[in-house]
């Protein structure tokens, strides 16, 4: 187990081609079973048996590879709340916001994880959009 620091946001499982304002109408992510109403997440380095690896953290952070279904603990560094999530999609792109400061009050630092609306809303308000987190992976 190790700690990784960055920011977390929320997303709808799926991809741009299926974009909708309703998460329930989008896809099910890289692993095929991502659901917005469950404690699921997207991680930037994902291995999927039978499919090419997905790596969205090329230039910014050194993150470990995860497989579909792996468990992570996401801790909100501002309010101390945490949620345990399963990885079921690939993303976000960590390259944006490289070298920006990270911590409570500085959430626009490298994005290391996207949470479903269910998981994100357990540790922050959705309208905040982005929070500084510590991920135990």
């Amino acid at each position: 187990m190790a700690y990784y620091y960055g920011s977390a946001s929320w997303f709808c499982c799926g991809h741009a081609g299926s974009w909708s304002s309703r998460c329930a109408d989008t896809g099910h992510g890289s692993c095929g079973n991502c659901e917005s109403y469950l404690d699921h997440a997207a991680w930037p380095k994902l291995k999927r048996p039978g499919y090419p690896d997905c790596n969205k953290s090329d230039n910014c952070l050194s993150l470990p590879w995860k497989y579909c279904g792996d468990t992570l603990v996401v801790y909100n560094r501002c309010n101390g709340q945490q949620v345990t999530v399963e990885v079921h999609d690939c993303g976000p792109n960590t390259n944006n916001y490289c070298n920006w400061p990270c911590g409570c009050g500085y959430p626009n630092c490298p994005a290391i994880i996207d949470l479903t609306p269910n998981a994100f809303s357990k540790i922050a308000n959705l309208d905040v959009g982005r929070i500084p987190v510590r991920v135990t992976a």
Partner: peptide
């Protein structure tokens, strides 16, 4: 819009600034 694992068809969205917009916190 960007996707996650996939690069799906691009679909432009019109964005307008809300009066209370906060940029980079």
């Amino acid at each position: 819009i960007d996707g996650h694992a996939h690069e799906g068809p691009e679909r432009p969205i019109t964005v307008r600034f809300h009066p209370s917009l906060v940029v980079n916190d």
